Simulated assay, not measured.
Amino acid sequence: MENKEYIESGILELYVYGLLSETENEEVTTMAKNNPDINAEIIAIEKAIVSLSSSFSPFHSVEIYEKIKAKLELNPTTKVIEMEPTRNWAQYVGWAAAILLLVGIGFQYNKLEQTSNQVVNATTEKIKIEQELNQLELKNKASETSLAIVRDIKNTVVPLGGQDAAPESSAKVYWNKETQVVYIDAAGLPEPPKGMVYQIWSLKLQPQLTPTSIGLLSDFTANEAKIFAVDKTADAEAFAITLEPAGGSLSPTMEQLYTLGKV
Protein backbone atom coordinates (compact mmCIF):
# COMPACT_ATOMS: atom_id res chain seq x y z
CA MET A 1 0.00 0.00 0.00
CA GLU A 2 1.43 3.46 -0.91
CA ASN A 3 2.07 6.06 1.78
CA LYS A 4 -0.81 8.28 0.66
CA GLU A 5 -3.30 5.40 0.72
CA TYR A 6 -1.96 4.24 4.08
CA ILE A 7 -2.26 7.72 5.56
CA GLU A 8 -5.75 8.26 4.16
CA SER A 9 -6.97 4.88 5.40
CA GLY A 10 -7.54 6.34 8.91
CA ILE A 11 -5.35 3.78 10.63
CA LEU A 12 -2.93 6.46 11.89
CA GLU A 13 -5.74 8.27 13.72
CA LEU A 14 -6.78 5.01 15.36
CA TYR A 15 -3.11 4.45 16.28
CA VAL A 16 -2.87 7.86 17.98
CA TYR A 17 -6.23 7.34 19.70
CA GLY A 18 -5.06 3.96 21.00
CA LEU A 19 -7.83 1.99 19.34
CA LEU A 20 -5.70 -0.55 17.43
CA SER A 21 -4.89 -4.06 18.44
CA GLU A 22 -1.40 -4.92 19.64
CA THR A 23 -0.47 -6.42 16.26
CA GLU A 24 -1.81 -3.39 14.37
CA ASN A 25 -0.04 -1.05 16.80
CA GLU A 26 3.33 -2.75 16.21
CA GLU A 27 2.77 -2.59 12.46
CA VAL A 28 2.20 1.19 12.53
CA THR A 29 5.20 1.71 14.84
CA THR A 30 7.42 -0.18 12.39
CA MET A 31 6.02 1.80 9.44
CA ALA A 32 6.67 5.10 11.27
CA LYS A 33 10.29 4.16 11.98
CA ASN A 34 10.96 3.23 8.37
CA ASN A 35 8.92 5.92 6.64
CA PRO A 36 9.39 9.66 7.39
CA ASP A 37 6.08 10.60 5.76
CA ILE A 38 4.08 8.32 8.00
CA ASN A 39 6.03 9.42 11.09
CA ALA A 40 5.38 13.07 10.16
CA GLU A 41 1.69 12.37 9.76
CA ILE A 42 1.56 10.75 13.21
CA ILE A 43 3.28 13.80 14.71
CA ALA A 44 0.78 16.08 12.92
CA ILE A 45 -2.16 14.10 14.31
CA GLU A 46 -0.68 14.25 17.81
CA LYS A 47 -0.24 18.01 17.52
CA ALA A 48 -3.81 18.42 16.35
CA ILE A 49 -5.03 16.44 19.36
CA VAL A 50 -2.89 18.46 21.73
CA SER A 51 -4.13 21.68 20.14
CA LEU A 52 -7.71 20.57 20.58
CA SER A 53 -7.06 19.46 24.14
CA SER A 54 -5.48 22.82 25.03
CA SER A 55 -8.78 24.58 24.40
CA PHE A 56 -10.27 22.53 27.25
CA SER A 57 -7.21 22.22 29.46
CA PRO A 58 -5.05 25.39 29.22
CA PHE A 59 -2.50 24.01 31.69
CA HIS A 60 -1.29 21.41 29.15
CA SER A 61 -0.21 23.54 26.18
CA VAL A 62 1.57 22.51 23.02
CA GLU A 63 4.71 24.15 24.33
CA ILE A 64 4.77 21.92 27.41
CA TYR A 65 4.08 18.89 25.26
CA GLU A 66 7.05 19.76 23.00
CA LYS A 67 9.36 20.30 25.97
CA ILE A 68 8.49 16.92 27.39
CA LYS A 69 8.98 15.32 24.01
CA ALA A 70 12.37 17.05 23.56
CA LYS A 71 13.59 15.79 26.92
CA LEU A 72 12.61 12.32 26.01
CA GLU A 73 14.48 12.55 22.71
CA LEU A 74 17.60 13.90 24.47
CA ASN A 75 17.61 10.92 26.77
CA PRO A 76 17.76 7.92 24.43
CA THR A 77 18.37 5.58 27.33
CA THR A 78 14.91 6.19 28.62
CA LYS A 79 13.06 3.02 28.29
CA VAL A 80 9.71 3.39 26.64
CA ILE A 81 7.19 1.05 28.12
CA GLU A 82 4.84 -0.23 25.48
CA MET A 83 1.33 0.12 26.82
CA GLU A 84 -1.41 -2.08 25.57
CA PRO A 85 -3.81 0.10 23.62
CA THR A 86 -7.03 0.62 25.46
CA ARG A 87 -10.39 0.71 23.86
CA ASN A 88 -12.94 3.39 24.72
CA TRP A 89 -15.62 1.02 25.97
CA ALA A 90 -17.54 3.95 27.44
CA GLN A 91 -18.02 5.30 23.94
CA TYR A 92 -19.35 1.95 22.72
CA VAL A 93 -21.64 1.66 25.73
CA GLY A 94 -22.90 5.18 25.05
CA TRP A 95 -23.73 4.37 21.45
CA ALA A 96 -25.44 1.15 22.48
CA ALA A 97 -27.49 3.05 25.06
CA ALA A 98 -28.42 5.65 22.46
CA ILE A 99 -29.53 2.94 20.03
CA LEU A 100 -31.59 1.23 22.73
CA LEU A 101 -33.13 4.58 23.62
CA LEU A 102 -34.09 5.22 19.99
CA VAL A 103 -35.55 1.72 19.69
CA GLY A 104 -37.51 2.29 22.90
CA ILE A 105 -38.80 5.66 21.69
CA GLY A 106 -39.81 4.11 18.38
CA PHE A 107 -41.62 1.31 20.16
CA GLN A 108 -43.44 3.73 22.46
CA TYR A 109 -44.36 5.95 19.50
CA ASN A 110 -45.74 2.94 17.66
CA LYS A 111 -47.78 1.92 20.72
CA LEU A 112 -49.03 5.50 21.10
CA GLU A 113 -50.05 5.61 17.46
CA GLN A 114 -51.87 2.29 17.82
CA THR A 115 -53.65 3.57 20.93
CA SER A 116 -54.61 6.79 19.13
CA ASN A 117 -56.01 4.79 16.21
CA GLN A 118 -57.97 2.63 18.64
CA VAL A 119 -59.40 5.74 20.30
CA VAL A 120 -60.38 7.21 16.92
CA ASN A 121 -61.98 3.92 15.86
CA ALA A 122 -63.83 3.64 19.17
CA THR A 123 -65.07 7.23 18.84
CA THR A 124 -66.21 6.62 15.27
CA GLU A 125 -67.97 3.42 16.30
CA LYS A 126 -69.63 5.23 19.20
CA ILE A 127 -70.93 7.97 16.89
CA LYS A 128 -72.19 5.34 14.46
CA ILE A 129 -74.01 3.48 17.24
CA GLU A 130 -75.53 6.72 18.54
CA GLN A 131 -76.77 7.58 15.05
CA GLU A 132 -78.29 4.12 14.67
CA LEU A 133 -79.96 4.44 18.08
CA ASN A 134 -81.36 7.83 17.11
CA GLN A 135 -82.74 6.39 13.90
CA LEU A 136 -84.31 3.49 15.80
CA GLU A 137 -85.79 5.91 18.29
CA LEU A 138 -87.30 7.98 15.49
CA LYS A 139 -88.70 4.83 13.86
CA ASN A 140 -90.17 3.70 17.18
CA LYS A 141 -91.81 7.07 17.68
CA ALA A 142 -93.21 6.98 14.14
CA SER A 143 -94.53 3.46 14.76
CA GLU A 144 -96.09 4.52 18.05
CA THR A 145 -97.70 7.53 16.36
CA SER A 146 -99.06 5.34 13.56
CA LEU A 147 -100.50 2.84 16.02
CA ALA A 148 -102.05 5.62 18.08
CA ILE A 149 -103.70 7.05 14.97
CA VAL A 150 -105.04 3.70 13.81
CA ARG A 151 -106.33 2.74 17.29
CA ASP A 152 -107.93 6.09 18.09
CA ILE A 153 -111.68 5.27 18.10
CA LYS A 154 -112.47 8.96 17.67
CA ASN A 155 -110.93 8.96 14.21
CA THR A 156 -113.18 8.55 11.20
CA VAL A 157 -111.49 6.30 8.66
CA VAL A 158 -112.11 7.32 5.05
CA PRO A 159 -110.83 4.82 2.43
CA LEU A 160 -109.65 6.42 -0.83
CA GLY A 161 -109.89 4.23 -3.92
CA GLY A 162 -107.76 4.38 -7.06
CA GLN A 163 -108.96 6.49 -10.01
CA ASP A 164 -108.32 6.45 -13.76
CA ALA A 165 -104.86 8.04 -13.42
CA ALA A 166 -103.72 5.25 -11.06
CA PRO A 167 -106.33 2.46 -10.65
CA GLU A 168 -104.10 0.40 -8.36
CA SER A 169 -103.48 3.27 -5.95
CA SER A 170 -105.15 3.52 -2.55
CA ALA A 171 -104.93 5.55 0.66
CA LYS A 172 -106.68 6.14 3.96
CA VAL A 173 -107.69 9.30 5.78
CA TYR A 174 -107.86 9.35 9.59
CA TRP A 175 -109.98 12.35 10.54
CA ASN A 176 -110.91 13.39 14.05
CA LYS A 177 -113.99 15.56 13.57
CA GLU A 178 -113.74 16.96 17.10
CA THR A 179 -110.13 18.14 16.88
CA GLN A 180 -110.26 18.47 13.04
CA VAL A 181 -106.82 16.72 12.89
CA VAL A 182 -106.18 14.80 9.68
CA TYR A 183 -103.62 12.05 8.99
CA ILE A 184 -103.02 10.39 5.63
CA ASP A 185 -101.90 6.77 5.28
CA ALA A 186 -100.23 6.83 1.85
CA ALA A 187 -98.75 3.33 1.90
CA GLY A 188 -100.86 2.42 -1.15
CA LEU A 189 -99.44 5.18 -3.33
CA PRO A 190 -96.49 4.68 -5.66
CA GLU A 191 -93.35 6.79 -5.39
CA PRO A 192 -94.05 10.16 -7.04
CA PRO A 193 -91.94 11.01 -10.12
CA LYS A 194 -89.06 13.42 -9.68
CA GLY A 195 -90.28 17.00 -9.50
CA MET A 196 -93.81 15.93 -8.52
CA VAL A 197 -95.64 15.77 -5.18
CA TYR A 198 -98.90 14.37 -3.85
CA GLN A 199 -101.41 17.03 -2.78
CA ILE A 200 -104.31 16.36 -0.38
CA TRP A 201 -107.73 17.98 -0.95
CA SER A 202 -110.70 18.39 1.35
CA LEU A 203 -113.84 18.43 -0.81
CA LYS A 204 -117.24 20.02 -0.35
CA LEU A 205 -119.71 18.32 -2.67
CA GLN A 206 -122.77 20.53 -2.14
CA PRO A 207 -124.06 22.85 -3.43
CA GLN A 208 -121.07 22.49 -5.80
CA LEU A 209 -117.71 20.79 -5.81
CA THR A 210 -115.29 22.94 -3.80
CA PRO A 211 -111.73 21.61 -3.27
CA THR A 212 -109.49 22.99 -0.50
CA SER A 213 -105.80 22.03 -0.26
CA ILE A 214 -104.88 20.73 3.19
CA GLY A 215 -101.24 19.87 2.53
CA LEU A 216 -98.55 18.13 0.53
CA LEU A 217 -96.97 14.73 1.16
CA SER A 218 -93.41 16.10 1.20
CA ASP A 219 -90.38 13.82 1.78
CA PHE A 220 -92.44 10.89 0.56
CA THR A 221 -89.43 8.60 0.14
CA ALA A 222 -87.87 9.44 3.51
CA ASN A 223 -91.09 8.72 5.41
CA GLU A 224 -90.90 4.95 5.79
CA ALA A 225 -94.17 4.67 7.72
CA LYS A 226 -95.96 6.69 5.02
CA ILE A 227 -98.14 8.34 7.70
CA PHE A 228 -98.41 12.08 7.08
CA ALA A 229 -100.00 14.82 9.18
CA VAL A 230 -101.73 17.50 7.07
CA ASP A 231 -103.72 20.63 7.83
CA LYS A 232 -106.92 20.48 9.84
CA THR A 233 -110.32 20.53 8.18
CA ALA A 234 -113.77 21.03 9.70
CA ASP A 235 -116.41 20.23 7.09
CA ALA A 236 -115.02 17.79 4.55
CA GLU A 237 -117.51 15.65 2.65
CA ALA A 238 -114.80 13.81 0.73
CA PHE A 239 -111.04 13.62 0.35
CA ALA A 240 -108.90 13.35 -2.78
CA ILE A 241 -105.22 13.00 -3.65
CA THR A 242 -103.75 14.37 -6.88
CA LEU A 243 -100.24 14.37 -8.33
CA GLU A 244 -99.01 17.94 -8.76
CA PRO A 245 -95.77 19.75 -9.65
CA ALA A 246 -93.40 20.33 -6.74
CA GLY A 247 -94.78 23.05 -4.51
CA GLY A 248 -98.40 22.11 -5.22
CA SER A 249 -101.19 23.74 -7.21
CA LEU A 250 -103.99 26.19 -6.46
CA SER A 251 -106.57 23.75 -7.79
CA PRO A 252 -106.46 19.99 -8.34
CA THR A 253 -105.31 18.60 -11.67
CA MET A 254 -108.18 16.23 -12.38
CA GLU A 255 -106.16 14.35 -15.03
CA GLN A 256 -103.77 13.38 -12.19
CA LEU A 257 -106.46 12.35 -9.69
CA TYR A 258 -104.99 9.29 -7.98
CA THR A 259 -107.45 8.51 -5.17
CA LEU A 260 -110.90 9.70 -4.03
CA GLY A 261 -113.25 8.76 -1.19
CA LYS A 262 -116.40 10.10 0.49
CA VAL A 263 -116.73 10.57 4.20
Score class of each variant (00 low, 15 high):
116 S>F: 00
247 G>Y: 14
231 D>V: 00
90 A>I: 08
114 Q>F: 06
160 L>V: 07
163 Q>M: 11
101 L>T: 13
213 S>P: 01
64 I>T: 12
194 K>F: 13
212 T>Q: 10
150 V>L: 05
212 T>E: 07
217 L>T: 08
229 A>Q: 15
85 P>S: 07
141 K>M: 10
103 V>W: 11
40 A>M: 11
256 Q>Y: 03
27 E>D: 13
118 Q>R: 15
122 A>G: 03
87 R>C: 09
52 L>G: 00
115 T>N: 03
107 F>Y: 02
127 I>K: 13
172 K>W: 04
194 K>E: 13
110 N>F: 13
251 S>W: 11
59 F>D: 10
34 N>I: 08
53 S>V: 00
91 Q>H: 07
31 M>L: 15
49 I>T: 04
153 I>D: 14
101 L>H: 07
261 G>L: 11
263 V>Q: 04
45 I>P: 01
255 E>P: 07
68 I>M: 12
147 L>T: 03
33 K>H: 15
51 S>F: 08
157 V>K: 05
110 N>G: 14
127 I>C: 01
238 A>E: 07
234 A>I: 08
52 L>N: 02
144 E>D: 09
48 A>Q: 00
1 M>D: 14
152 D>H: 13
33 K>S: 12
91 Q>L: 15
201 W>A: 12
156 T>G: 06
60 H>I: 12
4 K>C: 07
53 S>N: 06
36 P>Y: 00
115 T>G: 02
114 Q>E: 06
215 G>V: 01
74 L>K: 14
68 I>D: 12
193 P>E: 02
198 Y>Q: 06
12 L>A: 07
183 Y>H: 04
24 E>K: 02
219 D>G: 10
50 V>L: 05
110 N>K: 14
85 P>T: 00
243 L>V: 00
234 A>E: 15
160 L>T: 01
19 L>F: 00
250 L>C: 00
114 Q>M: 02
85 P>N: 11
59 F>H: 09
262 K>I: 08
25 N>R: 05
52 L>A: 06
150 V>R: 00
169 S>I: 04
145 T>I: 06
